[in-house]
Design a protein around this nucleic acid. Structure first.
Ligand SMILES: [Mn+2]
Ligand SMILES: [Mn+2]
Ligand SMILES: [Mn+2]
Ligand SMILES: [Mn+2]
Lengths: 158, 158
DNA sequence: GATAATTGTTAGCTAAGGCTAAACTGTTTG
DNA sequence: CAAACAGTTTAGCCTTAGCTAACAATTATC
């Protein structure tokens, strides 16, 4: 359960950076990341579908395939999964719609995405880099950090 | 290739947030995230092995299993992979060592991790939250953003 | 309205990253 | 030094997320 107690080799204290965090805290770091990865892609799909509907009037599998740079087969399979999760409704060969729950997720995800994107721009990051970084970072920002980012952005707006 | 040109449904311009980015740029966002995910776990393992060696004198599979909260079987399998990738050397039932390349990766990863962690603390994020967020964010921060974070931290140090 | 082009689906493959259960090795202890 | 314990490995299973190739449906074009 604990770290190995045997064969302890003397370390050189003081000369290297921060100490290792306690095992439980350390484990929580990785667990949180694993959990985020489970929902990450689903959120991106739902958010994109919401954006397509908002900006283009409808969401087609081909658009998702192009914008995500992924095969149509991959999109088709994922749509089936989103369906099973109760996030989208779809009829074969027709465009996609979000369920209530899907719409909620899309809004939440987009809002979070926007906070991160605007924060990075406020920090001074170039727009296209900020967009790339935000696409990944958004899934790993806690509510606490998100609130701080939002406040920072407001104070540095203009 | 392009977004669907047919059946365009009129959208309501102006009332909703930012426009969708051009298809190529949008695709690059997701591609970059997918690429980061490919190396993410490997970097975390190598970084952790380096930290264990630095702080505890040696890296044992059981320590990794405990600190990552993952089964020993999972660790064992991953170590084989790190071996094949030329990042660690290991003999059965003995502790782990990093190759030259592994050491380089460990250092780079830890440096990046530290920049993100210290940045979050400088922003005002609570330490334990900062640690959790940094564990995920570190893999999605571009060099450009990293440099900006570092500068920010230096200016807000004390 | 027939044909061509585009879009969507299905089947079957791969790799990564988890797990449990069982077997094996190395270390500690009575 | 034998037994018990701790640590490691292997085998076999599952899910996710990608791919290609073949087929099916819809939409556009002549
Ligand atoms: Mn997003
Ligand atoms: Mn994203
Ligand atoms: Mn790290
Ligand atoms: Mn990490």
């Amino acid at each position: 359960m604990s770290d190995h107690q045997q064969r302890r080799i003397p370390s050189t204290p003081g000369i290297s950076g921060d100490a290792l965090p306690p095992v439980e805290q350390h484990a929580k770091q990785y667990e949180t990341v694993r959990n985020a990865h489970e929902t990450e892609l689903i959120e991106d799909y739902v958010e994109l579908i919401g954006d397509l509907i908002r900006h283009r009037g409808e969401a087609r599998a081909a658009d998702i395939s192009n914008r995500m740079a992924v095969s149509q087969a991959t999109v088709s399979k994922m749509i089936r999964r989103l369906n099973e999760l109760g996030l989208v409704t779809s009829k074969p060969y027709r465009s996609l719609f979000l369920t209530e729950e899907g719409q909620k997720m899309a809004e939440t995800s987009r809002a979070r995405h926007d906070v991160v994107l605007h924060f990075l721009r406020a920090l001074g990051v170039d727009d296209s880099t900020a967009r790339i970084d935000a696409e990944g970072m958004e899934h790993h920002v806690s509510d606490e950090t998100l609130a701080i980012m939002q406040r920072f952005t407001e104070q540095h707006q203009q």
